[in-house]
Amino acid sequence: MELKRLITSLCSLMSVSGHEQYSYEAVSSLVGKYFDEIKSDGVGNILLVRRCGKENAAKIMIDTHFDEIGMLVTKIHEGGFLSVTSVGGLDLSILQATDVVIYGRETITGVIASTPPHLKKDKSAKKLTELSELLIDTGYEKEELEKIVSVGTPVGFSPVYTELLGDRMCGKSFDNKACAAAAIYALSKIDRANLAADVYLLLSCHEETLPTGGVAAGAFAVEPDYAMVIDVNLARVPDTPRHETVDFDAGVSISISAVTDKRLTRAVEQLCREKKIKYTRVAAPSSTGTNTPALNLTGRGVPTVDIGLPLKSMHTYNEVLCIGDVLELSALVREFVCSEKIREGFAI
C-alpha cells in the first residue's frame, strides 16, 4: 500500500486509549496480509508477527504504541449535548469549534460548542473554558441520544488529513500510528530470506494513559532478544527550547539515555551511518517519555533502542509530520530487522 494512504488509514481508526480493540478487525483486514500471524491479548495489545523461516530464530520486538488521546462521555444533557472528560494529555486550547466522532452504538458526528464574540459576556477573559464546562453538540434530542450514547462512550477527533507544501501532512493521531505505519510499510516490503530474526511488531495499548502502558505485558509474552521502541518526538517550533526538541525534516531521532541500551544504540547509529539514514541524537538522560523503560525492564531485561519521529503540534488533531522523516524511519526499521551484525551481538 502507498505510504500516505497507509498512514491515513491507520491514523483514522478509533483507538482511544483503553479502546484499542475496537479497531482490531480493521487493522487485521488492512495489514494482516503482510504478516504471518496477528493476535490480540488480554490487555488490548495487537501483535503482528513476521517470521524469518530459520530454526531457533532470534526475536526482535518493534514497539509502536497504537492508542491515541481522546475523550469519554460523562453526561448527557437536555437538547442533545454531551459533557466529556479527557483520555491522555488533551490540549484545552484546541477544543472549541472542533468536529468530533462519537463511537456509540452508532458512530455519529458532533461539534464542540464555542461562544461567539457577539455573546461573550467578558470579552477580556483570559481563561479558557474548562473541559468540564465544554459541551458537544450532537443535533439529537436527549431521548434519541440516550439510545446511541452512554456514560463512558469514547469520543475522538474527526479524521481529516491535509497535505501541506514540502511533503508535509497534518491530521490526527500521527502520535503514534504514523510510526506503526512506517514499521508496517518497511516489513511489508522485506523478503523473508533477508530477515535476520523473527520480527514481533507490537501495536501496544495504554501508552497515553498508564505509566507502564500495555507494552510490558506484550513484551513479557514474547521475550524478545532485543527491541526498538518508536514513538513521536517533539519537533522544534517557534518559542520552544532547542535542547528539548528535535529537528524537523532531518530524519529520525535516536535517544541517548540511561534507560536505553548503550551498545545497541551505538550499533543503530553505526547502521544509520552505513546505510545513509538521516538521524539526530537527542539527550534524554533518565527518561525518554516513551515505552522504552517499561520494555527495558520486562522479564530478564530487554536491550532497547529508542527512536523518535519528529512531530509538530503533538496531541492536536492537526499534528504535522514530514513524509521524508517517515521514509527515513521506515528505512531504519528495514535495516534494523535485516542486520545480521546486530543479531549476532544481541541474540541470547
Binding site: 486550547s93 481563561k127 503540534s313
Partner: peptide, 27 residues
C-alpha cells in the same frame, strides 16, 4: 498552531493563547 501542550507552562495550558503567540504552518 502554537507550541505543543508538552511545552506549555501551567498557566499557558489554562489560558486562551493570544493570536500573537500563534502562527500558521504551511509546510
Amino acid at each position: 498552531a502554537s507550541k505543543a501542550i508538552h511545552h506549555k507552562k501551567r498557566d499557558e495550558r489554562l489560558n486562551i493563547t493570544p493570536v500573537s503567540d500563534m502562527y500558521i504552518d504551511i509546510g
